[in-house]
Amino acid sequence: MLDDRARMEAAKKEKVEQILAEFQLQEEDLKKVMRRMQKEMDRGLRLETHEEASVKMLPTYVRSTPEGSEVGDFLSLDLGGTNFRVMLVKVGEGEEGQWSVKTKHQMYSIPEDAMTGTAEMLFDYISECISDFLDKHQMKHKKLPLGFTFSFPVRHEDIDKGILLNWTKGFKASGAEGNNVVGLLRDAIKRRGDFEMDVVAMVNDTVATMISCYYEDHQCEVGMIVGTGCNACYMEEMQNVELVEGDEGRMCVNTEWGAFGDSGELDEFLLEYDRLVDESSANPGQQLYEKLIGGKYMGELVRLVLLRLVDENLLFHGEASEQLRTRGAFETRFVSQVESDTGDRKQIYNILSTLGLRPSTTDCDIVRRACESVSTRAAHMCSAGLAGVINRMRESRSEDVMRITVGVDGSVYKLHPSFKERFHASVRRLTPSCEITFIESEEGSGRGAALVSAVACKKACMLGQ
């Protein structure tokens, strides 16, 4: 009897593995994704193909990295998701002549009506938060230079001027797309009239992360975010950046690689679950690469896999709870928690219980395998993109072996128990001629924006502006 049951459990697990095998990517698959990513990057950089390229390769006008001589107080704003952060950054000489960066910050959550109302409502709310922060720190009387981390696709015309191309991540505030974001912020500050600010720089969160990590390690020339969304930036040779005049030196390019796949480059790798996630998203047909990796989508992918296993009578005796059938019910943090389970399955059992399920031991094991399959594919897909960037940098610099540091931020990278190990191992397999160091950014977005502002202020002083 026991043997029969054991055989049935083994057969069930084997069927589960057959279904989950769809998520496995072979090294040849990853090399294919990497080569296609490089081709799209090239198209994004070139003037004649930029418009139709899915990977936009947006110039950021960040050319210099901090040298350690900029000092002063800077205000930093960070808008990239449902939370908005205001930070005071003091850049100065530390002990023994070292450079020191001290920060104080406060988080504000953005109400739904500000995210989806008008641009005026959104930026009025942001300036209200700045006003509140300055009151708390008794700094209303000071006109501070301000660095703005704005983590949406922007076409820069200068370091302090950028046109919002399109909202992502659930934002829909009308009247912002096609307009200068810094102008919208300046107008809102003017409307309030109770404080003055000098907006000197606007950067993407990947750029802010790279600059913040450069402060720790001067070989950091790539910034990457794996959180709600997924994106990367890197220092490109100016001669390859056709959208900006000049051939000397390097400029940081914001790849906006989340949109890779929007022209069909990933079609052969998309599964039924991916198509369902895409169809029910706020932007169907867009940001397809990001939807395979980002935390906004990972939990939902797992939920759809679990429903398939229920329908195949391989999980929960073929019956799903009402909660499990509800879109968004299986949160991405559950994926991390399930994979963090120590082996007694308590954590998995508790999560499934909150979803109205009474799982068996085998159910718990199957749910864990589903989570591992989805998150491992995410790590491997992400590795193909980064390997594409790094191999490109090595080739354009004609280096036999390139040493490089990548600064990384984002909740999936930082909080998932195995993502970074799987990701690092896969990147290294795909970049055999590179020695890569990964560092995690601390308060990256805010500190990085302030350091970019410090560079901009120093330049302005040198130019006598």
Results as ranks from 00 to 15, higher is better:
Val367Trp: 08
Leu88Phe: 07
His317Met: 15
Ala460Thr: 15
Gln219Lys: 13
Val310Thr: 03
Leu304Ala: 12
Arg155Asn: 05
Glu440Trp: 13
Glu435Val: 10
Glu236Ser: 02
Ser441His: 10
Val91Ser: 07
Met202Phe: 01
Leu386Val: 07
Cys233Thr: 03
Glu245Gln: 14
Thr255Trp: 00
Leu352Met: 07
Gly223Pro: 05
Gly147Pro: 06
Leu266Asn: 13
Gly97Arg: 13
Ile390Gly: 04
Lys31Ala: 11
Ala21Ser: 11
Met235Cys: 06
Gly81Val: 01
Ala320Trp: 12
Thr342Pro: 08
Cys233Leu: 03
Gly223Phe: 02
Lys458His: 13
Leu386Arg: 07
His141Asn: 06
Ile110Ser: 06
Thr49Gly: 14
Val427Gly: 06
Ser131Glu: 05
Cys129Pro: 01
Asp247Thr: 15
Glu331Gly: 13
Gly92Met: 06
Ala320Val: 14
Ala188Arg: 02
Asn231His: 10
Leu146Trp: 02
Asn204Met: 00
Asn350Leu: 13
Ser280Val: 11
Ile189Gly: 05
Ala460Glu: 09
Gly258Thr: 04
Leu306Met: 11
Ser375Glu: 06
Pro145Ala: 14
Val305Arg: 09
Arg46Pro: 00
Thr228Asp: 01
Ser76Lys: 03
Ser375Leu: 01
Lys13Thr: 10
Gln106Thr: 07
Val408Ala: 09
Glu331Arg: 04
Ala119Met: 12
Ser340Ala: 13
Leu134Ile: 06
Asn231Gly: 03
Ala259Val: 01
Gly229Ala: 06
Val277Leu: 10
Phe148Gly: 01
Asp113Gly: 13
Asp198Leu: 07
Ser441Cys: 14
Asp124Gln: 04
Leu122Cys: 04
Leu184Thr: 07
Leu75Thr: 09
Asp262Tyr: 12
Arg303Asn: 04
Leu30His: 09
Lys190Leu: 06
His105Asp: 06
Glu17Cys: 11
Gly170Tyr: 03
Asp160Ile: 00
Leu315Trp: 09
Asp262Lys: 09
Gly295Gln: 03
Cys434Asp: 07
Ala320Met: 14
Gln138Leu: 10
Asp274Leu: 03
Thr209Asp: 03
Leu58Lys: 04
Glu272Arg: 13
Leu164Gly: 03
Ser418Gly: 09
His317Ile: 09
Ile293Lys: 05
Val244Ile: 08
Thr431Asn: 07
Leu271Cys: 13
Ser54Asp: 08
Val389His: 03
Arg397Ile: 11
Glu196Gln: 12
Pro432Ser: 10
His317Gln: 15
Ile225Met: 08
Asp278Gly: 08
Val406Arg: 00
Asp4Glu: 02
Pro66Met: 14
Leu88Ala: 06
Ile404Phe: 11
Leu451Asp: 00
His156Leu: 04
Gln38Pro: 04
Asp160Arg: 01
Val16Phe: 08
Gln138Lys: 08
Thr376Gly: 12
Glu196Val: 04
Lys13Ile: 12
Arg392Glu: 07
Val89Lys: 04
Phe171Asp: 04
Ile211Pro: 07
Pro284Tyr: 11
Met87Glu: 03
Gly147Glu: 01
Gly444Lys: 04
Pro145Thr: 14
Thr60Leu: 02
Leu58Glu: 01
Val71Asp: 15
Lys291Met: 08
Trp257Cys: 08
Val244Ser: 02
Leu324Lys: 02
Asp187Lys: 06
Val226Asn: 03
Met462Asn: 13
Ser373Tyr: 08
Gly80Cys: 07
Glu48Ile: 14
Glu120His: 07
Gly92Glu: 09
Asn350Gln: 08
Asn204Thr: 02
Phe133Asn: 00
Lys56Leu: 06
Val401Met: 15
Ser418Phe: 09
Leu292Phe: 09
Asn391Lys: 08
Ala10Asn: 12
His380Gln: 09
Cys230Gly: 05
Lys56Arg: 04
Val310Met: 06
Ser445Ala: 03
Ile159Met: 00
Gln287Val: 15
Ile390Trp: 03
Met37Gly: 01
Val86Met: 03
Ala11Pro: 01
Leu309Trp: 08
Leu304Glu: 07
Glu319Lys: 06
Ala188Gly: 06
Val89Leu: 15
Gly261Leu: 02
Gly249Met: 10
Phe438Lys: 10
Asp160Leu: 03
Phe74Pro: 01
Asn313Pro: 08
Glu95Ser: 12
Lys190Phe: 09
Gly318Asp: 12
Thr60His: 01
Phe260Thr: 01
Cys457Pro: 15
Glu216Pro: 15
Ser411Val: 00
Thr209Gly: 02
Lys136Asp: 14
Gln26Asn: 15
Gln287Cys: 15
Ala119Tyr: 01
Leu306Asn: 03
Ile366Thr: 09
Arg85His: 07
Gly446Cys: 07
Phe150Gln: 05
Glu268Lys: 13
Cys233Asp: 01
Ile366Gln: 10
Gly170Ala: 01
Met139Cys: 03
Glu14Gly: 06
Arg186Gln: 00
Val401Arg: 10
Gly249Val: 00
Ser263Cys: 12
His105Gly: 13
His50Ile: 03
Ala11Cys: 14
Asp158His: 08
Arg46Cys: 07
Glu52Leu: 10
Asp158Asn: 04
Thr228Arg: 00
Thr376Glu: 13
Lys420Gln: 12
Asp78Met: 06
Ile130Gly: 04
Arg325Trp: 09
Arg397Pro: 08
Ala329Arg: 14
Lys31Trp: 12
Val335Ile: 13
Met37Val: 05
Ile126Phe: 06
Leu122Phe: 00
Cys371Thr: 14
Val335Tyr: 02
Arg191Lys: 07
Ser445Pro: 03
Thr376Pro: 06
Gly68Thr: 14
Tyr349Gly: 11
Val302Ser: 10
Val203Trp: 00
Ser109Arg: 06
Leu301Ser: 10
Tyr289Ala: 02
Glu279Gln: 12
Gly328Tyr: 13
Asp3Arg: 13
Asp363Ala: 08
Glu268Met: 09
Gly147Tyr: 05
Leu451Pro: 04
Ile366Glu: 13
Val200Ser: 05
Leu122Asp: 00
Lys13Gly: 12
Lys13Cys: 14
Glu399Val: 08
Arg403Asp: 14
Ser151Leu: 04
Met238Phe: 06
Leu430Ala: 06
Glu248Ser: 12
Leu266Ile: 15
Val406Ala: 08
Val62Glu: 04
Glu28Gln: 09
Glu256Tyr: 00
His218Met: 14
Gly227Pro: 01
Cys233Val: 05
Gln26Trp: 14
Asn166Ala: 11
Tyr297Met: 07
Ala208Asp: 00
Ile163Cys: 01
Met139Ala: 04
Glu248Trp: 14
Ser69Lys: 15
Met34Arg: 09
Ser373Met: 10
Val338Ile: 14
Met402Tyr: 11
Ser131Asp: 06
Leu415Ala: 10
Gly229Glu: 00
Cys382Leu: 08
Val226Ala: 07
Arg428Asn: 11
Asp198Gln: 15
Lys459Glu: 15
Glu112Thr: 11
Gln26Arg: 15
Ala232Glu: 01
Lys12Met: 15
Tyr234Arg: 02
Val181Pro: 01
Val203Ala: 01
Glu236Cys: 05
Ala370Thr: 06
Gly97Lys: 07
Leu266Phe: 05
Val412Arg: 01
Val367Ala: 10
Glu290Thr: 03
Met202Ala: 06
Val389Tyr: 03
Pro284Leu: 12
Ala378Glu: 01
